[in-house]
Design a binder for these strands. Structure first.
Lengths: 109, 109
DNA sequence: TTGACATGAAACCAAATGGTTTCATATAAG
DNA sequence: CTTATATGAAACCATTTGGTTTCATGTCAA
């Protein structure tokens, strides 16, 4: 089955946490330092730092040192393969909808 | 931020495991009993049963008892909100591509 | 140089996760 | 009825996860 390679496992893992998804949304708006991110949450700075590490490992963000700050920026590309995996089911979902529509039509005859 | 409601957290949680994603693909092909699923993997039946529980909690599958068998069927609808969340970044990704294209064009002048 | 600030890193912890084995139960088949 | 099948359920276990606190380090500013 489609297990084995599973190139986007790190991405799915990264997306499984709500805080990480929120971080991603914030970084999609604009690149930010860790400190700038922390203020948006109620967890400690090291906690956010760990989340960023997970996101970085999944290549969902890129990090660049700027003086004493680390600027984290969103990396949309990494989302693509995961999004593609989902999109396949989307098409499937449309099919089902279509079938349901047909079924309802039949029933109404 | 978009934390708080997070209606699709169970879906993202469920998708974070490769075995669970593989199960979902199998069920998208056709509904199957637990036993029919187990043969596709190298883990024990209880392990698969637990995965199915997670998928069911996320409403990614529906279960119907048929005699002594439990038939698990894929429920595409639950994927939609999660897919939508991703789709938002897709558009963003296209934007970036567009910007990059413009940047390259500028550079070539 | 001396602080103050932004962060890295380590040690530690409770809870969740993914897995197992064992035992119980309901149903289909002889 | 008896047996084999399909599953549920419980107990248990190692590892991972998400979080903390504490301490070290590098950099900007006075």
């Amino acid at each position: 089955m489609s297990l084995g390679k599973d190139i986007n496992q790190p991405v799915f893992r990264a997306l499984s946490d709500p805080t990480r998804r929120a971080i991603l949304e914030l970084l999609a708006d604009q690149p930010r330092s860790i400190g700038a991110l922390v203020s948006h949450f109620e967890v400690s700075r090291p906690a956010i730092a760990k989340h960023l590490k997970v996101l970085e490992d999944a290549q969902l963000i890129a990090v660049s040192q700027q003086g004493r700050e680390r600027i984290n920026s969103f990396q949309p590309l990494a989302l693509k393969s995961a999004a593609d995996w989902m999109r396949w089911f989307d098409q499937f979902w449309d099919d089902r909808l279509e079938r349901l529509k047909h079924a309802v039509e039949e029933e109404c005859l």
